[in-house]
C-alpha cells in the first residue's frame, strides 16, 4: 500500500510541471484546452502537448494560444499542425483511407473472436451429445447382455 502511494505521488508530480497558457476569452480558453489535448508532442510521443513539458510542446502551446487569440478556428489550427507535422501530430488519428485499418482492426478482431468462441461452443456441444448418446446405449441392459455373451462365448446365446 505504501509503495502504491509512493508511486502515485511520483506519477502526479509530472502533471504540474506544465506551463499552461491563459487566454482572456473563456471560449478560446476552452478551445485551447481541447486542442492541446488533441495534439501530440512529437518529442515524447506518448504525451499530448498539454501533458508534455518538452520545449517543443511548450512552443506548440504558444502557437495554439496565439492562433486562437488571432481568431483562428480549431480546424484551421489542426490544419496548420498537420501541414507541418503530418497526421502523426493528431493524438486521435483521422478516419480516412490510410487509417481505415487502424479503426476497423479492433472491431474485426472482436468479430473473429466471437466467431471462434461460437465455433468452439458448438463443437463442444456436439461432442457432449455424442457421449450422452453412447451413454444411453450402455444403460440399455438388453444390449449389454448381448455384448457380454458375445465377449464370453463368441456367439449369441
Amino acid at each position: 500500500m505504501k509503495r502504491l502511494l509512493f508511486m502515485l505521488v511520483l506519477l502526479s508530480g509530472s502533471c504540474y510541471a506544465v506551463d499552461s497558457r491563459q487566454l482572456s476569452d473563456p471560449k478560446q480558453q476552452e478551445s485551447y484546452e481541447t486542442l492541446t489535448k488533441e495534439l501530440r508532442c512529437l518529442v515524447c510521443q506518448n504525451q499530448t502537448i498539454a501533458d508534455s513539458n518538452a520545449e517543443l510542446a511548450s512552443d506548440l502551446r504558444r502557437q495554439v494560444s496565439e492562433m486562437l487569440a488571432q481568431g483562428k478556428s480549431k480546424e484551421e489550427i489542426i490544419q496548420f499542425m498537420t501541414d507541418r507535422y503530418g497526421d502523426f501530430v493528431l493524438y486521435k488519428p483521422a478516419f480516412k483511407g490510410k487509417t481505415l485499418l487502424l479503426w476497423i482492426a479492433p472491431i474485426a478482431f472482436l468479430v473473429i473472436g466471437l466467431i471462434a468462441v461460437l465455433l468452439v461452443i458448438r463443437s463442444k456441444k456436439a461432442k457432449e451429445k455424442l457421449t450422452s448418446d453412447t451413454g444411453a446405449l450402455q444403460s440399455d441392459t438388453e444390449k449389454q447382455k448381448k455384448i457380454r455373451s458375445l465377449l464370453d462365448n463368441g456367439e449369441v446365446s
Binding site: 517543443l56 507541418r84 503530418g86
Partner: peptide
C-alpha cells in the same frame, strides 16, 4: 522550426 515541422 515549427514552420518546417522540426521536432528533433
Amino acid at each position: 522550426g515549427i514552420d518546417y515541422g522540426v521536432y528533433g
